Amino acid sequence: MLLANPYFATAAYFAVTGLAMILFLTIFELVTKYRVWKEIKKGNIAVAMATGGKVFGIANIFRFSIEHHDSIGQALIWGSFGFLLLLVSYFVFEFMTPSFHVDAEIERDNRAVGFLSMVLSIGFSYIVGASLKL
């Protein structure tokens, strides 16, 4: 009933997605070899780009999930599933580059790798998001 009110619904989706974003970024922090916020504070642009791509990717997946599901619970479940797929894409990126380590290059502020990481996160978020309509 409360979600019938567009103001309440917007606030509820904002709150749930915001908390999920914090949780998912914490998980990304745990799986990277570098400390994201420490590197950003030092001015590491590659880390900022890679993290920005993850933020955009998570938000984009939730955008699709909210748009195509009737309840906050369904949107959260599908958004979480989409996040797991985004996390898998992170590991695939690392696996597909055997000549260098993605995390090490990003930590060294290799902006080419940071940019590619950002674009992969954004790109896969569109693929995952589009499949959430099915």
Rank of each mutant, 00 (worst) to 15 (best):
K41M: 06
E105P: 15
A12F: 08
A50Q: 09
G18E: 08
S99P: 10
T26I: 00
V47F: 06
L23R: 14
T17S: 11
K41V: 02
W37Y: 06
E39L: 08
A59S: 04
G57Q: 07
A46G: 09
S80D: 02
Y34M: 01
G114I: 08
Q74A: 05
A15I: 15
T32V: 00
L19S: 13
E67S: 12
Q74S: 06
F83L: 10
A15S: 14
H68M: 01
G73P: 10
H68T: 08
A20I: 01
T51G: 03
A20W: 08
S71I: 01
I45D: 10
Y34T: 00
R35N: 02
I72M: 07
N44H: 10
W37S: 02
G52C: 05
K54I: 11
D103P: 14
L76C: 05
L87E: 01
I66Y: 05
N110Y: 12
V88Y: 14
K33M: 00
S121P: 05
E94R: 14
F14P: 13
G73E: 01
I72K: 04
F64R: 03
N44P: 07
A48R: 13
F14I: 03
Y90S: 05
A112F: 15
G43W: 08
M118N: 04
N110E: 12
E67M: 08
N44E: 01
V55Y: 12
V36F: 02
L120C: 02
H69W: 10
F81K: 02
T51K: 08
D103E: 04
I77D: 00
L86T: 07
A59Q: 00
I58K: 10
I77K: 11
S80W: 13
R63K: 06
N60R: 13
G53P: 13
L85S: 07
V31E: 10
L30N: 05
T97V: 15
E94C: 12
I45H: 12
K38W: 03
K54F: 14
V47S: 05
F93K: 15
K42R: 13
V119H: 14
L120V: 04
H69M: 05
G79R: 07
E105F: 12
F64Y: 02
Y34Q: 01
L84H: 13
I77P: 01
M21D: 09
F95I: 12
G57Y: 09
R111Y: 01
A50K: 07
L19C: 11
V55T: 09
A11F: 13
L86F: 11
Y34E: 00
K41W: 07
T26A: 02
M49G: 05
F62Q: 01
I72W: 06
Y34R: 02
G43T: 04
I22Q: 14
L30H: 13
T26L: 04
M118T: 02
A11E: 08
L30I: 09
A48P: 12
N60T: 08
M118Q: 05
F81E: 03
A46H: 05
G18H: 07
T97W: 15
F115E: 04
S99G: 14
L116H: 12
F95M: 15
